[in-house]
Each structure stands twice: as structure tokens, then as C-alpha cells.
Design a protein around this nucleic acid. Structure first.
Length: 230
DNA sequence: GCGACAG
DNA sequence: ATCTTGTCGC
């Protein structure tokens, strides 16, 4: 396994990235229910950075949606492809994430991203971008509210409050653990918001953060450490 | 113009 | 994201 280079033609400046975002947005599919929660595979994706050494490590962990047991794991190490710019996170994370996904032999099923999908300034966050590029159903589960305002959801697991933008529900602040800060769920591609929330609850039997993300987070950090040593 | 701002 | 020990609580 070598180091994945930044793809030829990958946007290098914000203006170009915004153009690409606008183009890909047209391919977003929002009229599908998506796979049922608890069935098939769910794949967690996450990325760790070392900007000092210009290194990025991504992890993809496939789980059995019913048992939440690990089916397969893959990692990829690459070069930083874009600076962090709120609203353009996908351009920073996607090249290496795609490399990790390509290394999988199993069917990824639903892609679970660490970030947003439709709940995005231009309705095309990381989860939507990755969904369109792979053609797969995808959801975004973020740990922070980004720029969206929301009413405090009820105190129990399963309670939620809409994330609104221009009067429309672009996502939900969903309580995955009673009495604990909610997570922020939004549709990425080819799935409904209700179903995205059902999947998120199915993935959080014990912790606030989905099992998919927890596995991917631990794995990409380990991969980054190994890349530093090499 | 000044902050806020997924990871 | 990342820099970072101990510590309170179930």
C-alpha cells in the first residue's frame, strides 16, 4: 500500500470547488426510501489528518446492519487535497475516503459519513457528495450543529427536532442517548430523512456516536500513526 | 465590516 | 481535525 495521490483535476481553489459542487448537486437523488435499517451492510467512514506532514488517513469499516459486527475494514493514506473550508469539507476528505472504499471487497451498503449531507449551505455536504460519486445511498451524522439553528429535542433517546434552513427541514437534531447532546442527521443521497434517523438509532444501541463512525475513527487514527512511523 | 463555521 | 491528564460518574 503506497500513498494515494490527489486525483488529477481535483479542485485546487474554492472557486473551482464551488463550480464542481454545483455540477454534482444536479445528480443528487432524493426520492428514494433507501435500504431498511437493520438489514444488509452499513459502512462507516472517517478521516484523520497530520497537516504538518501533509498526510491523510481514511478508514472504511463495513458492519452487518443487524448484528453490528465488523464484516470488513480497509484504510488508505494520502496527501492533503484541500484546506478545511466550512462548506467545502468534501474536497478535503473524499479522495482518500474513495481509496479506502475501493479497497473493500464487501458490498458497502449504506455509507455513513461523519458530517452533513443536505444540511449544508448549498444543500450538498460531504454525505451527498460521496453518495453521488459512488452512486450509493449515504447519510451524514455530525457531532456539531454547523450553522443550523434548532429547538432542543426532547430528553429521551429517539426524540428529535428539525434542523431548518429557509423554512425547510434539512436534517434533524436526534437524541441517540437520553440526557445526552444530540447528533445531527441529514440525508446524503438515495434515502429518506426518516430512514436516515432509523439507521442512526439502530447504530447507537450504547453510545451517542454510531458504531460505524466509532470503528472508522479508531481505525483511521491507527492508520495515521502507522503512516507517520513509516 | 465582524463573527460563526461539519472535520 | 488537533494540542492533551486527570477525573467525576454510572
Amino acid at each position: 500500500m503506497g500513498i494515494t495521490g490527489v486525483p488529477a483535476g481535483w479542485p485546487a481553489d474554492e472557486e473551482t470547488a464551488l463550480d464542481v459542487q454545483r455540477e454534482l448537486r444536479e445528480r443528487l437523488v432524493l426520492d428514494e426510501e433507501g435500504p431498511a435499517a437493520g438489514e444488509g451492510h452499513v459502512t462507516g467512514l472517517d478521516v484523520a489528518y497530520d497537516d504538518e506532514r501533509d498526510l491523510v488517513a481514511a478508514a472504511a469499516v463495513v458492519l452487518d446492519a443487524g448484528t453490528l459486527e465488523v464484516v470488513e475494514r480497509a484504510t488508505a493514506v494520502g496527501r492533503v487535497s484541500f484546506p478545511y473550508v466550512p462548506g467545502l469539507l468534501a474536497f478535503r476528505e473524499i479522495p482518500t475516503v474513495l481509496a479506502a472504499l475501493d479497497a473493500l471487497a464487501a458490498d458497502p451498503g449504506l455509507l455513513v459519513c461523519d458530517g452533513y449531507g443536505l444540511a449544508h449551505p448549498r444543500r450538498f455536504g460531504l454525505a451527498s457528495h460521496l453518495g453521488v460519486l459512488t452512486g450509493r445511498p449515504a447519510i451524514g451524522v455530525a457531532k456539531n450543529p454547523f450553522t443550523f439553528a434548532y429547538d432542543r429535542p426532547g430528553p429521551d433517546r429517539g426524540d428529535f427536532a428539525p434542523l431548518r434552513a429557509d423554512g425547510e427541514e434539512v436534517g434533524r437534531a436526534l437524541r441517540t442517548r437520553s440526557g445526552v447532546k444530540p447528533v445531527f442527521v441529514s440525508v446524503g443521497h438515495r434515502i429518506s430523512l426518516d430512514n436516515a434517523c432509523a439507521h442512526t438509532l439502530a447504530l447507537t444501541p450504547r453510545y451517542r456516536i454510531p458504531e460505524t463512525t466509532r470503528h472508522a475513527d479508531a481505525l483511521c487514527r491507527r492508520a495515521l500513526q502507522e503512516a507517520r512511523a513509516a
